[in-house]
């Protein structure tokens, strides 16, 4: 696991550790030289990941529409982890837990019991809509493997897996139309 801190990929970003610290970029910019916008703070990084290339809000940070053209320089491993937390919130921790066999994820029946009566009633009337949302929304838009729907992450040691542990706000938003 520790080797992932030296160099690696997660979703659409890659990083490498050099003598000054960590350099985090979009994978499309992996080999770019001196032409990337420097992102110095976590608040600036938040602005980068908040919008897509057309300036539209990205509520789903794990969607495959992260803009390129920037570089975040982290001076310490803590700054690096916090940067990854901004880009893919919660997902580094999930990946570590997965690799240690400790990741907890939900199952559909438990998910439903946590919803209000209004949502449960809507779901019961929705037929195969939840399955369609998973196929059309989760699997096509989002880079995470939908563990709670039986999907498994691709087995690539060099890449940190992106793992979905339960239906997110976007899932419910799509389900409710």
């Amino acid at each position: 696991m520790e080797t992932m801190y030296e160099a690696g990929e997660m979703g659409q970003v890659c990083w490498i550790k050099n003598e000054k610290g960590w350099v985090v970029r979009h994978i499309q910019d992996q080999d770019a030289v001196g032409q990337l916008r420097s992102v110095a703070t976590l608040d600036e990084l938040e602005e980068v990941v908040r919008w897509d290339e057309r300036g539209k809000y990205r509520p789903l940070r794990s969607e495959g529409n992260l803009v390129s053209g920037w570089q975040y320089d982290a001076n310490s491993v803590t700054e690096f982890r916090e940067g990854m937390e901004v880009i893919y919130p919660g997902l580094w921790g999930n990946a570590e837990a997965w690799k240690h066999g400790k990741l907890k994820f939900q199952i559909w029946d438990d998910v439903l019991t946590k919803q209000t009566e209004r949502v449960r009633s809507k779901v019961s009337q929705a037929g195969d809509m939840p399955r369609r949302v998973i196929e059309e929304n989760c699997k096509k838009r989002c880079l995470k493997a939908v563990l709670w729907a039986g999907e498994k992450p691709a087995d690539r040691d060099a890449k940190m897996p992106m793992l979905c542990t339960g239906p997110c706000g976007m899932f419910w938003s799509c389900l409710e139309g």
């Binding site: 509520p59 789903l60 794990s62 919660g90 580094w92 999930n94 837990a97 907890k104 542990t165």
Partner: peptide
Amino acid sequence: VRSAFWKEQPSYADAIQGL
């Protein structure tokens, strides 16, 4: 220090797992 959300990422559950 983390933020966590009902409708956005990270979810409450994911925020806890990464600590």
